[in-house]
């Protein structure tokens, strides 16, 4: 078998989490090639009814009512899953997309909060995605809360964090306890390593397992079916990871 890239591993892992009856409509926001590929793969794998809406670009983008429609659609409860990243993510699932240091005098500035402060409240299954599993990304307390992980009772909220997926681990957020629980660890890594590289306290699931490697069928579908479709939204990513031109 060919070597599996880090991106392929993540795409396949996220894709499996999306294959659940609770999720009928996945939306994918800005700058999210891995989640976008994962959603398309979930659709191609065994779920042709799964609706996948990628908001940027003209491919897999069903919206016809302008930039606001994604948010209105989420507010109406029509979107079941969405992805958010984080320059920092903390143990309470607060995410920071703005910058490091004390705002507004940040020491390093990142793009900004995008739609996170709304989507996190309206989409029931938000997948947090960390490009790097380290104590500098997974911090005790974010420097700026773009979107909070939970809300007091007097703030209407149907949505929130479901999973945190990184190159090392898959964790589930327990909304009652307000903490992450480690579900599985990437092959070749240990629970101890994950705990050490996570800058906040986590719970370890009693049945913590090893994250499954991509299946041959998944990889084949990914290259044959998903990549050509993804290339029209993320040409640079698709060229780099799959060697496919748009």
């Amino acid at each position: 078998m060919e070597t599996v890239s880090r991106e392929e591993f993540l795409i396949c892992a996220i894709s499996r989490l999306l294959c659940t009856p609770d999720i009928c409509h996945v939306a994918v926001g800005a700058a999210s090639p891995i989640p976008g590929a994962a959603a398309l793969l979930a659709q191609a794998t065994d779920n042709p009814q799964l609706r996948v809406s990628i908001i940027h670009g003209d491919t897999n983008n069903p919206f016809t009512d302008g930039g606001r429609e994604l948010f209105d659609c989420a507010g109406q409860g029509r979107i079941d899953a969405f992805f958010l990243g984080g320059v920092q993510i903390d143990g309470a699932a607060n995410i920071n997309l703005v910058g490091l240091g004390k705002y507004p005098e940040t020491t390093r500035r990142f793009p900004g909060s995008f739609g996170s402060a709304y989507m996190y409240f309206t989409v029931p299954n938000v997948f947090l995605f960390a490009h790097e599993h380290s104590a500098r990304v997974l911090v005790p307390r974010v420097d700026f809360i773009s979107a909070p992980g939970s809300s007091p009772d007097d703030v209407a909220r149907k949505g929130g964090p479901k999973y945190l997926v990184s190159n090392l681990a898959i964790m589930e957020f327990d909304r009652a306890k307000k903490l992450f629980r480690l579900l599985s660890v990437a092959p070749g890594h240990s629970v101890e390593e994950v705990v050490e590289k996570t800058g906040f306290e986590i719970e370890i699931a009693p049945d913590v397992s090893t994250t499954s490697e991509p299946e041959v069928e998944q990889l084949e579908l990914l290259k044959r079916k998903v990549a050509p479709s993804l290339a029209r939204t993320y040409p640079a990513f698709t060229l780099r990871v799959f060697g496919i031109n748009a």
Partner: peptide, 22 residues
């Protein structure tokens, strides 16, 4: 703005510097 980015081309370089410098 809700964010400023060059998309697949990466961070918006002038924005990133000028905002940090206030």
């Amino acid at each position: 703005a809700a964010a400023v980015s060059l998309g697949e081309a990466g961070a918006a370089p002038r924005f990133s510097e000028v905002v940090v410098n206030g």
